[in-house]
Amino acid sequence: MTAPVGFLLVSALLFAIGLAIALIRRNAILVLIGVELMLNAANLNFITFWRYGANPEALTGVMFALFSIGVAAAEAAVGLALIIAVYRHFNTTDLDRIDSMRG
């Protein structure tokens, strides 16, 4: 197996695991972790295609990965603050019990 395919497969596996966590687990913090894993899979793809792509001197993939890391950090901070606020209100982080808007 040549190098870019290996990295892309690792990225796909990471994305699938993140998706599975976000869909399966009931805890809100773990759903956020799943989203972070999916963002990291995208970053790995950016770096891989920058490394094996046509024009690595342009630095575009590296820049996009850096900005993506920054956005992911902001998203984690806001998401965890929201989870803490929801926990204060409902006294649980179990997503199946936060159902006051269920019709």
């Binding site: 699938a16 599975a20 869909l23 399966i24 649980t92 199946d96």
Partner: peptide, 28 residues
């Protein structure tokens, strides 16, 4: 901060976990 004092939930996975796992496996 969000560690609750209630006993652990019956199950750590949501009800539709089989379908969710299938979707994730299909995506991979």
């Amino acid at each position: 901060l969000t560690r609750s004092h209630e006993p652990l939930a019956r199950s750590i996975v949501s009800p539709g976990w089989v379908a969710s796992g299938l979707v994730a496996a299909a995506v991979f």
